[in-house]
Write a protein that binds this DNA or RNA. Structure first.
Lengths: 191, 191
DNA sequence: GTCTGCATGTAAGTCGTTACATGATTAG
DNA sequence: CTAATCATGTAACGACTTACATGCAGAC
């Protein structure tokens, strides 16, 4: 079984949204796809080059003063078809994120409860931050509907982040509680 | 900023649970850490070798008939300290999982609603499967408490999976509903 | 004056998977 | 007779990040 490389399609898709340069693609990903997709310039520029080589996109070099030439990329008909073909293919697997907090929690019998709780609290704070960011982005998209067709789907993906993040925050609180309850119980029996 | 490699610590931690061979480590990960950590033999065996080279573990070769020599690994005192040191280090980042479904959803204006809904339903089914698996593992751990100290923390990590998966399932249902509502509305105005 | 934004790109290195090789035993 | 389980390991490849190189414009 061979593994599909979705990065190519991520870029193919973004080229339909009005982001036409490598720099703009990076920006859009960092702003709007941030919670489920990341990418670095080290991938973007070579991939764009390859899209052109494969006939999925064309380049238009726009000379600029004081800056490197701006290269605008546009999908060809083949490129659009390739994107649609990929969109229709079924999703292979639910992703497994490597989660450092859960890994540490898994081995937390080798650590003090105080330390474990600290990790959980720290994690909850980070999740809250993410939650707030999602809410702000959501507000931005709803108030400035640049492209109505896309906007709705963008909100959907954000909503995924919001719901799962909320669930994770609740889990943090519940877990902290349980560890503290156990601690109190041990304290009583020790006396 | 350098990136930490947590795989080493995952193995270090598992060696404290009574899994002493590369094979057993792989099994434990596939069964119990499956929803937040994956690892292949191509990583396990070289890492075990390196642990010994670095003085964090020792090997004991047990000859077997008809099978390759069984190599049992045990943590040294240095190894245990290394694990504890890592446990106390704060978590760097909340992980970002690349999510193929969300990526496709993000670009779903280039696809029929029927196709999008199919993806969502498929995803929901996969999530339900995961949910059931988590519940079964939870039952197993609670009914056969092999190691009470560890068991509690293992349940916590499972609970994380259960809660976030449930939230994701609810999101699937809600999103499918919204797409269908929109579709119905368009249908009416078209007539 | 220094930092951020714009804008491109490459090379080296890390991390991780997949495919292969070996081979006996046991269950279906 | 075939598949799974036990059990080890490596080589090649792929995906991705980080660090580097370049350089102007405008804000503070």
């Amino acid at each position: 079984m061979k593994k599909m490389n979705h990065t190519k399609y991520a870029i193919l898709g973004i080229l339909t949204t009005g982001c036409n340069t490598g720099y703009a693609i990076k920006q859009l990903i960092d702003q709007s796809l941030n919670h489920f997709w990341k990418i670095s310039y080290g991938q973007i520029y070579p991939t764009l080059k390859k899209l052109v080589a494969d006939g999925l996109a064309t380049v238009q070099v726009i000379p600029q003063e004081g800056k490197p030439d701006r290269k605008e990329y546009y999908l060809t008909t083949t490129g659009k078809l390739e994107l649609q073909k990929w969109l229709q293919q079924p999703i292979s697997e639910i992703p497994v994120e490597k989660n450092e907090l859960l890994l540490k929690l898994f081995f937390s019998s080798h650590q003090s409860n105080a330390s474990t709780i600290q990790h959980l609290e720290h994690y909850r704070d980070k999740l809250s931050e993410s939650y707030n960011t999602y809410k702000e982005i959501e507000k931005m998209i709803t108030s400035y509907p640049s492209n109505e067709n896309d906007a709705q789907f963008w909100i959907f993906t954000l909503d995924y982040g919001i719901r799962t993040t909320l669930a994770a925050i609740e889990w943090c609180d519940a877990t902290i509680q349980e560890i503290q309850n156990k601690e109190d119980l041990n304290g009583q029996t020790d006396i």
